[in-house]
Design a protein around this nucleic acid. Structure first.
Lengths: 123, 123
DNA sequence: CACTATCTACGAAAGTATTCGTATTAAAAC
DNA sequence: GTTTTAATACGAATACTTTCGTAGATAGTG
């Protein structure tokens, strides 16, 4: 499956968050942040259906769209392509930079440490 | 400074790795991975000079280009924009996914743990 | 039933990124 | 000194993404 574009990702995120939704639903959510025409959102979602990023139920007049990739799978793909284009494939470099540059809270650090421990145990 | 595009990033990476370089140098490196015309690379680098992603020395016939952003700064920007578009701004989510999905080696985990300790000490 | 609001379909325009052909000029090789 | 090689400049073609206007159909309202 091809990578979603930026606009498609925004829509996917809404579908992941809200579950199956109409164009109207998605459009209203998008409009909170950004001024956009309704048919723009419609067109994008139609393209997503064509590309297979979303499935749609056309049984009633108002079509209902559903993300056809799971949030985790899609983000795994995006992350791995980001790591390969920006960090030459080194997940470590990415993590070091993410932790080094951003002020990560102690709670978040704790969670990360916990995950690392559980990874180490399972080896 | 605007975010570099994918193609520009590939070129920047070469400039970071090799230091100041001619179009020929960069083009040869790119050609290892991908078939591309010389003038394509030239044009991209000219655009990068226009946009300010690279500086060029035109004192001799063969122009020499230099990245005008540091690798760390550019990647910090890219990372932060990736985190905001894909992880709703949560660096923690990104790190958890990067560690969770990729098989990170023990050495890498050790390095990450070391960094976390040093962050914690400096708080 | 007529009127209005709301939906989809479709195509085209606008914006951005990438690719490359051609012309011109400068250096190098012979 | 002439020919070949290698460089830049420039503009246009291609491709991909985003935006939106218009048309036609369906549902709801008075």
């Amino acid at each position: 499956m091809a990578k979603p574009t930026q606009s498609e990702l925004k829509i996917l995120q809404i579908l992941w968050d809200k579950g199956p939704s109409s164009v109207r639903d998605v459009h209203e959510k998008i409009s909170e942040d950004k001024d956009a025409g309704y048919t723009t959102t419609l067109k994008l979602m139609q393209i997503m259906a064509e590309k297979g990023h979303a499935a749609r139920d056309t049984s009633s007049r108002t079509h209902i769209y559903t993300a056809s990739v799971s949030e985790n799978d899609a983000k795994t793909d995006l992350l791995s392509s980001f790591i390969s284009s920006t960090y030459k494939g080194s997940a470590k470099s990415l993590v070091l930079q993410a932790l080094g540059n951003n002020a990560t809270s102690q709670e978040d650090l704790d969670e990360i440490k916990k995950l690392i421990s559980s990874i180490e145990k399972s080896k």
